[in-house]
């Protein structure tokens, strides 16, 4: 049994521009195979923090751009449908994006579309600074008391960034609770899909899971 306290961390993010652009699907495909993992993560996740008060229609920039700029509606839908919850590494996510584009390129006929000038895809990446917040939960009950007060940035780090970008395979909360012997609670929290709700809603769902297991 692990009796380590839980240290809430948070993330501050700076957007770094790569200077690389794409005007066609072929250029996008080539770039997705070469850009850094930080780039892939940025373009599939940055909207979660940009306006978490509203669930965007599409979180994935690749889906948005192929639909809006290239008018490739079917491909856009397939890219948007890539289930981020099913991946625990950027490497696998990158493969899935490439495979989806490859499949579309192989089946599409006619002249490849080029985006209108000014609508190019601009590749960016996240430069993340991870810091301790100073908020520490001594036990599971204390965790739920403290969770109510942590920021969405902290939630984002422990639930999305840690799981996929740091390849911890699960969210930090569930990992810690399993170590505390709260396996059922950890599984419940692990089953929450952060990609279909806002961060505010996600926090409420985690708190509700705690209440359902007797941690008010």
């Amino acid at each position: 049994m692990n009796y380590e306290p839980f240290h809430f961390h948070t993330e501050r993010r700076l957007v770094e521009l790569t200077g690389r652009t794409a005007r066609t699907l072929a250029e996008l495909r080539a770039a997705v195979g070469e850009i850094s993992g930080a780039c892939i993560f940025y373009h599939t996740h940055h909207l979660f923090l940009s306006h978490h008060f509203e669930t965007p229609l599409v979180y994935n920039d690749f889906a948005d751009w192929t639909g809006e700029a290239l008018q490739e509606g079917a491909l856009s839908e397939k890219l948007a449908a890539i289930d981020l919850m099913s991946f625990t590494s950027i490497r696998d996510l990158r493969e899935a994006i490439m495979a989806t584009i490859d499949e579309h390129l192989a089946s599409s006929r006619g002249r490849p579309r080029e985006c209108p000038p000014g609508d190019e895809f601009y590749f960016c990446k996240s430069k993340s600074f991870i810091m301790a917040t100073g908020v520490v939960a001594l036990d599971v009950a204390d965790f739920f008391r403290k969770l109510a007060g942590v920021t969405n940035l902290s939630l984002y780090f422990h639930f999305l960034e840690a799981r996929l970008r740091l390849e911890r395979r699960t969210n930090d909360f569930s990992h810690w609770m399993r170590g505390r012997g709260e396996t059922a609670l950890a599984d419940d929290i692990d089953s929450l899909d952060p990609y279909i709700v806002t961060l505010d809603e996600l926090k409420q769902q985690i708190l509700e899971s705690g209440r359902a297991h007797g941690f008010a």
Binding site: R12, L14, G37, A38, K127, F129, I130, M131, A132
Partner: peptide, 17 residues
């Protein structure tokens, strides 16, 4: 954050803990 970034060139994830 840019001031911080200047001390961590080339790092995508900077642990400041």
């Amino acid at each position: 954050l840019v001031l911080l970034a200047l001390d961590h060139p080339g790092e995508d994830i900077v642990h400041l803990c």
